[in-house]
Design a protein around this nucleic acid. Structure first.
Lengths: 188, 188
DNA sequence: AGGGTCGATGACAGTAACTGACATCGATGT
DNA sequence: ACATCGATGTCAGTTACTGTCATCGACCCT
């Protein structure tokens, strides 16, 4: 038995999500989050760089999963098809966490400071995908554009998946959104 | 003659850009910015909501100009073509400010806090464009996807325009980038 | 001319995010 | 038994940001 309760990081993240949901992001102090997790404010900042980051510890996993899938796409796949290869694994990652994702998304969308952090995480995701494409010998600006387009599809699809009442799979919605993007981008 | 020097807002913005460039964003205090502008810290916060916003006062103009151009595009224009109608006016807006834009962009890219603010401004731009498309009876998710794609083209093209040594016009670069996006999105 | 209102600014105190330095103390290894 | 280590606590300090009240030239009204 350790000297401290286990999983301090997770307790902090859960406490933060609860409090941001109950009182709102601005009305919650870091000291309150730490107290609910049974820790001190100083310890919060040892686990998370700032008050926003506590909601985004999953971002590196998402980025790694997505980028690896793009890197391992069939050699013959066109850039945007390679990006679409990331949709499958990512959909699985979220499959059994829809309620959590919905709760978290509602909190994030409620405050611009959190939206900003979400956007820079998506930008980092886009950068990692673009890098994976460049390794596949996709040139610029095609790599960046395919990555940005793919992330746009993911963003739009993710929000639809969260908003929908029917329990359609995320993968299906992402396929639809991708088709819609292709249709929109097709020259008239 | 007024009781105070004119254009306090502009003086604050110029002082901030200078100081962020000289010492970096984090090493600059709001009190220093205000002092260089001949004002006090409290007055800074009357003109700008926070330390980041001082670099983004032009964002509303950009958004208005872009969205209006999309709204006024020929009725026959397809969604992405309507978005592309915004590229012309926006290119003109930046035409004679390349050095300023480059200086500002270098400062923004140097610190994540400023990148985050830039990203949420671009997200607002995308939202405004999507709204203009919806008024043109473009459905969802086509409107959001066309807007996101258009902003991705603008983002990529803008960075190229700033990075290039040759003095090509931004409009030309944006046309190229749009063609590249279309090529990337075309089904294999 | 005199008086009243207005609007941009200054002065000052207060909250909360974040940081650095040092102390604590159970676990772990030798 | 003893030294070391690592996660945490404690405390003081800086700075972003806010609320409140005072100041004082410009402007208006009579």
């Amino acid at each position: 038995m350790g000297r401290w309760q286990p999983n301090a990081r997770g307790r902090l993240a859960e406490a933060a999500l609860e409090l941001y949901g109950e009182r709102g992001y601005e009305q919650t102090t870091v000291a309150e989050i730490a107290k609910r997790a049974g820790l001190t404010e100083r310890t919060f900042f040892r686990h998370y760089a700032d008050k926003r980051e506590v909601l985004f510890s999953g971002a590196v996993d998402l980025e790694g999963l997505f980028a690896r899938a793009v890197a391992e796409a069939p050699e013959s796949a066109a850039p945007l098809d390679a990006v679409a290869c990331g949709f499958g694994p990512v959909s699985e990652m979220f499959a059994d966490r829809r309620d959590f994702a919905r709760r978290r998304q509602a909190v994030i969308m409620a405050h611009d400071n959190l939206r900003e952090r979400e956007l820079i995480k998506l930008a980092a995701l886009s950068g990692a995908i673009a890098e994976a494409l460049r390794i596949r010998r996709v040139g610029e600006p095609a790599a960046s554009l395919a990555a940005e387009a793919g992330v746009a599809v993911f963003k739009v699809g993710f929000e639809r998946w969260i908003a929908e009442s029917e329990r359609r799979g995320m993968a299906e919605i992402l396929r639809e959104s991708l088709a819609e993007l292709r249709s929109v981008a097709a020259s008239g």
